[in-house]
Nucleic acid binder design. Structure first.
Length: 171
DNA sequence: CCACGGATGCGCT
DNA sequence: GCGCATCCGTGGA
């Protein structure tokens, strides 16, 4: 599922316009056998959205920033995909303002950068993508890009699992 | 109440 | 490429 999300559009309606871009990097966090997953210790107030139905958003805060996940399994399972990077495409000027950065290379090149550029906070935690009209994941028809799997970034446990997915032939 | 760690990013070199 | 600022949530007293 994390690999399938690569290439999708990730779009956000904020301040009267669509902003966002194409997903070029994701990481999967599993319900079982994954010591790096927030779901590993069961449901808490913070991670309860991760145990919601598929297509629910799980937004958590870390290092005084926010990260956006999409739940991938049915209710009470506890598996999600972290959106790690976008290729910025829509509403670049607004994203630059929200980020306080003009360098396109530092606009949506990390999970917390994405949330800042798209105006996503924990207020969006628990939102259902199927019924939400301010965040939208849309399929992208292009099939010319190759997805590469590798180890995840920034974690200390379960580093060996190849659950990070990136485009291997995208600029 | 408070200490501490974290699925990070900035600012330099 | 790397050090460290930053601050919220969590868990233990």
């Amino acid at each position: 599922m994390a690999a399938q999300l690569i290439g999708h559009w990730c779009l956000r309606w904020t301040e009267g316009q669509w902003v966002g871009g194409m997903i070029i990097e994701t990481e999967a966090y599993l319900a079982a056998g994954d010591e790096a997953s927030h779901s590993r210790c069961g449901i808490t107030k913070r991670n309860q959205s991760m145990f919601g139905d598929a297509a629910m958003l799980y937004v958590y805060s870390i290092h005084a920033k926010y990260c956006l996940n999409v739940v991938t399994e049915r209710r009470n399972v506890g598996s999600a995909v972290l959106i790690r990077a976008l290729w910025p495409t829509y509403g670049i000027e607004l994203m630059q303002r929200l980020r306080g950065q003009t360098d396109p290379r530092r606009l949506t090149a990390g999970p917390a950068m994405i949330c800042q550029a798209l105006g996503v906070t924990t207020a969006d935690d628990g939102i259902d993508l199927m019924t939400c009209d301010t965040i939208r994941f849309a399929r992208n028809p292009r099939r010319d890009l190759v997805v590469h799997a590798g180890p995840r970034i920034g974690i200390s446990r379960s580093r060996d699992l190849p659950l990070r997915f990136v485009y291997s032939n995208f600029p």
